[in-house]
């Protein structure tokens, strides 16, 4: 059996070695191979989808994507932070002065022009996703002792973005205002976010 290695053939017998016999029907093979290849590629693509889709939010995650907040205990001037989809949501009971300050601004000065009226449902309740639009840090300004930035709203300590009392970007690197999540008042003192 030792000769196995030695006698192993060096040159293979390729299709071309069969000469003219192979030429006949070459066209049909090409078309057939093309169709079969296309089928196989479609199949492989279809196989990829379940894998990709399995990484999208699952049904239990989607089911929890609403959060209800009771507003009754929040005094004027106070703010609370609630969790919605794993992110902090700022709920601020604004004072009349804060509302006035937010509405007096000349929109032309803003980087991301948006009137305060379009950012709230009821003027005294400001609800925003507390994630800086720059690189995702959580701005300061919820606690009374927090720095609130130069415009009396929020200040992001990561890269120094300043937001006003309507959560609009006024200074610093962030490109856009703090986002307002979809929410609705389900009663006078209760909102549902999401």
């Amino acid at each position: 059996m030792a000769e196995t290695l030695a006698t192993h053939p060096g040159t293979p017998l390729g299709p071309e070695a069969h000469g003219a016999a192979a030429e006949h029907g070459e066209k049909r093979r090409d078309f057939l191979t093309l169709v079969t290849g296309a089928f196989a590629v479609v199949g492989a693509g279809a196989i990829a989808w379940p894998f990709i889709h399995s990484l999208n939010p699952s049904r239990d995650v989607l089911a929890l994507s609403t959060t209800e907040v009771d507003l009754a205990p929040i005094q004027v001037g106070q703010a609370v932070t609630v969790v919605w989809r794993g992110k902090p949501v700022f709920v601020r009971h604004r004072t009349p002065q804060e509302i006035a300050a937010a509405r007096e601004v000349n929109l032309a000065e803003l980087r991301d022009p948006q009137p305060d009226e379009r950012r709230v449902i009821k003027p005294e309740w400001l609800v925003m996703v507390g994630v800086c639009t720059h690189l995702g840090c959580v701005p300061l300004g919820q606690k009374p002792t927090d720095p609130k930035g130069e415009y009396g709203g929020w200040f992001c300590p990561c890269h120094g973005s300043h937001y006003d009392t309507s959560g609009r970007i006024r200074k610093g690197p962030a490109p856009a205002n703090l986002a307002v999540p979809p929410y609705a008042f389900i009663s006078d003192t209760q909102i549902r976010i999401g």
Partner: peptide
């Protein structure tokens, strides 16, 4: 169903390729 069709195609290709052997 897809695999049945693909199986037929693949078998035809195989027959074609092996025809000269």
């Amino acid at each position: 169903l897809f695999l049945t069709v693909l199986g037929g195609l693949v078998y035809a290709v195989k027959r074609k390729i092996w025809a000269d052997v």
